[in-house]
Each structure stands twice: as C-alpha cells, then as structure tokens.
Design a protein around this nucleic acid. Structure first.
Lengths: 138, 138
DNA sequence: GTAGACCTTCCAGCGCACTGGAAGGTCAAG
DNA sequence: CTTGACCTTCCAGTGCGCTGGAAGGTCTAC
C-alpha cells in the first residue's frame, strides 16, 4: 500500500502521514525497490486510532506515548483514561476562563452602546476599553 | 523616561515593549545622546490601553488598527465596538465547540470506566478510543 | 578604573500541527 | 520516447505573542 492510498483511505494528506512518521507516531515502513513507502494494511488502523485520539483532543505527544505503550506490548488503557481525565480538567478550566472573558466582553459591549464617542479623548485612545484592567487574555 | 521605567510602571517586560514598537503598536521614541529610548509620559497611557485591549481579547493586529485610527485623529469607538461584537461571536462559537468536546470526553471517560483492559487488542491499540470518529479537535 | 545596572541591536526559538514548494526519481500507459 | 501521476528528500514557513541569548555600548557609584 503506497502513501497515496493510505492518504485516501485515512483522509489525511501524504504530507501529514510523512510528518507523523517523522514525529514518531508511525514506524518507518518498508520500501519498494523504487524507494516508495510500502505500508502494511494495519497502518490504516493505526491512523484511525490517531484520528480518534486527535478527535478526543489528545496532542500528538500524548498519542505518541499511548502508541509507545502499545508497541511495547503493554495495555495503554489506564494511561488513556488518565489522559482523558486530564483533558476534561483542562477543558473545564478553559470553559471557566472563556465564560469570564465573555462576561467581561458583554459588559464592554454594553458600555460601548452607552458611550458617547465625543468622550473618547486622545489620551484615552478609546474610552470604551479604558481601565478595564482584567488581565484575562483568552 | 527610559524603557526600564516604562516596563516597571506598565508591568510589561522591556522585551515586550521593544516588540510592540517593532510590531507598530508604539511609535519610535526619541533617543538620549547615548542612544537610549526616551519615552514621553503618555506612552504609559498607550501601554495601558494596549493592556486593556489585550485583556478584552483583541489581537495585536486589531489593537494596531485601533491605534492607527486614533493616531490619524479619528475616533475609533465604532471600530472598537465592532471588534468587541466580533470577539463575542468568536467566544460563543468556541464555547459551543468546547462544550461539545467536553460531552464527548465525558462519554469517553464513562466508556473507559466500563472497559475491560483485556478487550483492547493490538489491532485496536486502545478500545476506549476506537471508533470515536468525532472530527472535533479543540 | 572598575563593577554592575542598565541599555542597544540582531538573530533565533518556542509551541503546535501541519503545509508549501523546489528539485528530482519512478513507473505505467499510450 | 514522452507524458503525467505519483513518489522522494529537504528546507522553510504558517500564526501568535512574545522570550532568550549573544555581543557590545552607556552611565552612575564607589
């Protein structure tokens, strides 16, 4: 199976597949006499796993660690469960931050609606934002 | 006022201040005979505005556009209001995405709790994630 | 005169996951 | 024999907002 076929069946680009190899997610495949990568069928499953794991929000580094466990013959389930829990925590934190940012932005929008442009001075630059020292980039 | 003083009063690093100058957010200040940057007092206000705008989630490019309007003598209020509205829309979209991702991860966590590690085969790599083809990286 | 606090410029890198492009090799069909 | 689809490697860039470090200049205090 050549890289183009693998790309077609997995929905990834050939560039991405080579990148995954270089990133240690895929083992180096055997080559044809002409030097083309010649993948075994099961690489399809491996890419499907990577896609699923990406969909669950795992980073490539995390996926690499899961694959390394499996490749070493271990069962990565416990590890995967821990990663999922950690990502849940991350997401909850980000949701909280985002909600705070939204509240701040809502307040600014109201303030904007109530602001007379004439009040904005050169020194303020823009009165709408002046003094909204929230320290909360998102 | 030298760059170190400005850094101290604004809470930014000297690196960041030079970076802002290079990024077109700060005009080039006059120099002392020794070649040091010598900022006027009002640069403090300008940095305070940048900080406030960053806190509201505006990008440096957006902030640059606001400052350019003000520097051109225009009142940027309308522009700022539009940017705020746009960021509100962005945030709402991101919140929706994040909530969906969280729901998916919750489901995975439950599945993980109910999964017997023995079910994970080499071909699966990890059954917990198998077939969760959600296409929703976050 | 020398320590050291501060400043200067310039270049490079981070993290993340790719993506683009150049320059060239391989292979099947016509 | 040529066309063209496909493949190879290697290098570099994307976006975003900085951050680090090297190599050197300036100024104040002792």
């Amino acid at each position: 199976m050549r890289i183009g076929d693998l790309a077609a069946t997995s929905g990834l680009s050939t560039k991405t597949i080579r990148f995954y190899e270089q990133a240690g997610l895929l083992p180096e495949p055997p080559r044809t006499p002409g030097g083309y990568r010649d993948y075994p069928e099961r690489t399809t499953q491996r890419l499907a796993f990577i896609r699923d794991a990406r969909g669950a929000g795992l980073t490539l580094a995390e996926i690499r660690s899961v694959l390394a466990l499996r490749d070493a013959g271990a069962s990565p389930c416990t590890h995967v469960t821990a990663l999922i829990d950690q990502h849940l925590t991350d997401i909850d934190r980000r949701l909280t931050e985002l909600r705070q940012t939204r509240a701040a932005l809502r307040a600014l929008a109201e303030r904007a609606a109530a602001t007379d442009p004439a009040e904005c001075t050169d020194a303020d630059i823009c009165r709408i934002l002046a003094g909204t020292n929230s320290e909360r980039p998102y």
